[in-house]
Computed example of a mutant assay.
Amino acid sequence: MKQVWRHLLFAHWPVHEADLLPYIPPGLKLQQWEGRPWISVSPFWVDPLRLRGIPPVPFTRRFLELNVRTYTEYHGKPGVLFLTLEASNPLAVIAARTLAHLPYHHAKMHAQFVDHSIQYRSTRHASDRQKMEFIGYYRPLSDSIFHAGPGTLTHWLTERYCLFTTDSKGHLYSGEIHHLPWPLQEAELEIKNNTLTKSLGLEHDREPSVLTFTERLDVLFWPIKKL
């Protein structure tokens, strides 16, 4: 599969190990940077999505997505583990949950450009009392693009080329990802509301510790494989 990610924000926070351990399946090890595990929140557009060898699937070519991920490894191989993936397209959600065992959820989402910033809203009611919501304004601070240097925290957070997931029976899977190094820009974010990470039981500062913007990234996905 090929996806093009557009107008992507990367917001990163250190969190408490105890908050993340319940999400780490057997066989994976939670990674830490200088003694702290991290999470990342990423709102963006998928435009387009294409499955190799078949025509574009109607109504799944373009949609909004927001994911929350953390950082793990399998026998020394680093990768990402998604805690949740919110998407505006219900067909894409069903396909990803069924074929890739990824924790996708259909959410009510809206994004628009407002005064040179992107206003992004994602809302999902997990229960009658629990609303998982992220509302924020973000934008790049300049046109200057940089690539994270090896050995830096930003490189550790962004340059990941494998995802891990589990099915309903607890079987562990991995999927290979390929793209060029992240073209990053300095960014700013104004958070209006964020109950998304709180609803996952994660405590962190209100403002992210690391923040970048990417205008476009072309990404290739290989089919997931059982480990």
Rank of each mutant, 00 (worst) to 15 (best):
F113Y: 08
T166L: 03
S144T: 07
A107I: 00
N194L: 08
S127I: 14
G170R: 03
D115V: 08
T165L: 07
T214M: 09
L200M: 14
P181A: 13
N193V: 09
H178L: 06
T123S: 14
K169S: 10
T154Q: 11
S127T: 15
L202G: 12
D167S: 12
F164V: 06
A111H: 03
E159W: 14
N194R: 03
L184H: 00
P208M: 09
M109W: 04
H178A: 13
G151S: 06
G170M: 01
H147W: 12
K192N: 01
T165G: 09
I135D: 12
L196I: 09
E190I: 13
Q119W: 11
L211S: 05
H155V: 10
R216I: 11
K192R: 05
W182S: 03
K108P: 00
D115S: 10
D128S: 13
E188Q: 09
T123N: 12
E207G: 01
P183Y: 13
L172F: 07
L202A: 03
Y173P: 14
R160P: 13
H147D: 09
N193L: 10
G149L: 13
A111M: 09
R206W: 15
H105Y: 14
K198L: 07
S174V: 01
T158Y: 03
S127L: 15
F213H: 04
K131G: 01
E188I: 00
T197D: 03
T197I: 02
Q119P: 04
I145M: 05
H155G: 02
D115K: 12
W182T: 00
S122R: 05
K131R: 13
T214D: 05
S168Q: 08
V114A: 02
S168F: 01
K198C: 07
C162W: 10
G149P: 05
T212I: 06
T152N: 09
Y137L: 12
R121E: 13
H116T: 14
S117C: 15
Y104I: 06
L200V: 11
H105G: 02
P181E: 14
Y104D: 08
S199G: 02
H116F: 03
V114R: 10
E159Q: 11
H106Q: 04
H110C: 02
I135C: 11
Y173T: 06
T197F: 01
